[in-house]
Design a binder for these strands. Structure first.
Lengths: 197, 197
DNA sequence: GTCTATAAGCAGATAGAC
DNA sequence: GTCTATCTGCTTATAGAC
């Protein structure tokens, strides 16, 4: 009944095996992006990665661990992008916000199906503290930027803005929209409206 | 390979059977809301509904048909709420928007897990024209309201606003937020900001 | 360390009794 | 019209050869 399936099997990975792990994760990402959660079976992932299921299970104790690691990596990539913005603060709230949203749009529109699938499955997964902390990091980074500009209740605002942006970008990705600049502009408008009253 | 699994089996339903169909759909809705898509198995639904799988399959040709009908009913309920607002137009855009968003919040926060699951699965389902038309109806109703107030590109605006609201309400539901008034106010702020530049 | 083959379990779906 | 029993196929996961 419990699901303590969290970590990849080999925590300190052999140097050579990293390529295999990466291939597996990349295969999983591609399947999720193009065919959705239902198509993500261990056999399909192994096939796509060019390895056998046996090898897959040597590195991941199960499907959940695969998803968890994917969430970890995608989340980390986004946090990196966000922190780049946070490290180079602009003078106006609008400019900071636009930079943040550009980063989010770029990230999420790269593989819209992947982002959507991971966002959906994430709350149902038994993630470890480290992984949950990633999401908290994201909210905190944004929250700090907002605070810098005197936004009230920055924590709630950060959560709302993340949700708002995710929703709009998800829908755009699903609709096949490719105009990232226009999309970012519209998201920014909504975000600014939310903050300015 | 194809999935033409769209309609309930008995289109013109026997009066008596309606209760059974309703029980099945209600059971499915409850399972989705509280335990998610993975838990939605035909056996689980039949159990919860107090009928056998055999009966379930007499009314629905498969799981997809069950989901499709659920989407149809939930969508129709939302469209009804929205059209009530559309029928009683307010004088200001802000007032109309607030009314729309209140309706959306009320609808989606009633069973947050259900709304989330259906929104996720919907794009992957082979829906019939009637069902797709429901979503189009929603967008069109909102679009018309926007147009009434002179909003430019009302169609795109409607899509964006729906996505924005869904994202924020989904996240709030997931976080267990129960302050509908506050949530609606925040969503309205974002929506107005989006529209006002 | 990677493979093939297979075991075990489950979900979807149906047949046939009542 | 509804049930029970069952079948088929698929997915997860492992065992054991190389």
């Amino acid at each position: 009944m419990s699901k303590p399936v969290i970590h990849p099997r080999k925590r300190p990975r052999q140097r050579r095996s990293e390529a295999t792990v990466d291939a597996i994760l990349e295969a999983a990402a591609r399947i999720l992006d193009s065919h959705g959660l239902d198509a993500l079976t261990t056999n399909a992932v192994a096939d796509r990665a060019g390895v056998s299921v046996g090898s897959l299970y040597q590195y991941f104790p199960g499907k959940a661990a695969l998803l968890a690691e994917l969430i970890r990596r995608e989340g980390a990539a986004l946090v990196v992008r966000i922190n780049v913005v946070a490290a180079e603060p602009a003078s106006t709230l609008a400019a900071d916000l636009a930079a943040l949203i550009n980063a989010a749009v770029a990230h999420q529109l790269e593989r819209p199906g992947l982002a959507r699938a991971l966002d959906f499955i994430e709350p149902t997964l038994p993630l470890d503290g480290e992984t949950s902390a990633l999401n908290a990091d994201l909210a905190r980074s944004i929250s700090m930027i907002l605070e810098r500009h005197g936004v009230a209740e920055p924590h709630q605002a950060a959560r709302d803005l993340i949700a708002l942006a995710k929703g709009m970008i998800d829908a755009a990705g699903l609709a096949g929209e490719s105009d990232r600049v226009g999309l970012a502009a519209r998201v920014t408008r909504a975000a600014l409206g939310y903050l300015k009253h």
